[in-house]
């Protein structure tokens, strides 16, 4: 099984820091775009990660 190590690390970090991230996200009344900032980070990480080819690709 080929699980990307970077993704594994990010998943672990997100799991550990989820309560803190969540409270930061909902703490502001007007900064409604905060979840999107995180989301954008995920997109960038996914873009970075997809550059690696996997052996089971066809």
């Amino acid at each position: 099984m080929y699980i990307n190590r970077l993704l594994l690390l990010v998943s672990g970090v997100v799991l550990i820091f989820f309560p803190a991230i969540e409270s930061w996200m909902v703490s502001s009344e007007i900064a409604w775009y905060r979840p999107y900032q995180l989301w954008l980070l995920v997109v960038v990480a996914a873009y970075w990660n997809q550059r690696t080819r996997y052996p089971d690709e066809l």
Binding site: Y2, I3, N4, V42, A45, Y54, E57
Partner: peptide, 8 residues
């Protein structure tokens, strides 16, 4: 994002 788990 975790395509390696199921999608790939």
């Amino acid at each position: 994002v975790l395509a390696a788990l199921l999608l790939r």
